[in-house]
């Protein structure tokens, strides 16, 4: 099953390498990973998408906890949460395709953020499923490049992951 694990990490050199190394060392999967400092520059917030059965996910969270630089973590997918991913897609846009791509982007509430004589670059924000669906919708178009940020997530309601 897919899980979204959110981690507060000391913003120190080597901390991210240690965390990523743990996944490689113990054979866990990383489907996506995003990381950046928070409003407190000593802390990084990291969102990691992984999959595995309950036993594997339990081990992942326990092993992450053991890393000295991990301050706190939570499995967002255990409760109501919001997840977002950003995607930039560069597509071939000539002739009829130009209108077609524009229409699809509008339907998905994407924005065309760059234009050239033969290409459009579309920016789209949403859940990973929505981004997948948009790529599906472009099946008649020649996709030149896809860049996805990986998932960022946060709990709904008053629940927080903070010091």
């Amino acid at each position: 099953m897919r899980h979204i694990i959110s981690v507060l990490l000391e913003n120190e050199s080597g901390a991210l390498a240690r965390l990523v190394g743990l996944f490689a060392q113990r054979g866990y999967n990383i489907d996506s990973l995003t990381v950046a400092p928070t409003e407190d520059p000593t802390l990084s917030r990291l969102t990691l998408v992984t999959h595995g059965n309950d036993q594997v996910i339990e081990q992942i969270t326990k092993q992450l906890h053991k890393l000295i630089e991990v301050v706190k973590l939570t499995d967002l997918s255990e409760a109501a949460h919001i997840e977002r991913e950003l995607m930039l897609v560069k597509v071939k846009a000539v002739g009829e395709q130009r209108d077609e791509v524009k229409r699809s982007a509008d339907i998905f509430r994407g924005q065309i953020v760059d234009v050239s004589a033969t290409t459009y670059t579309v920016q789209l924000v949403g859940t990973s499923d929505k981004l997948d669906a948009f790529i599906q919708a472009l099946s008649g178009t020649q996709i030149l490049e896809v860049v996805r940020s990986g998932v960022s997530g946060i709990s709904r309601g008053e629940k927080t992951l903070a010091l």
Partner: peptide, 14 residues
């Protein structure tokens, strides 16, 4: 050495 020892230490620092 930090990279080499990372999987075999409880922690490492420089």
């Amino acid at each position: 050495m930090l990279g080499i020892s990372r999987p075999i230490v409880k922690h490492n620092m420089s």
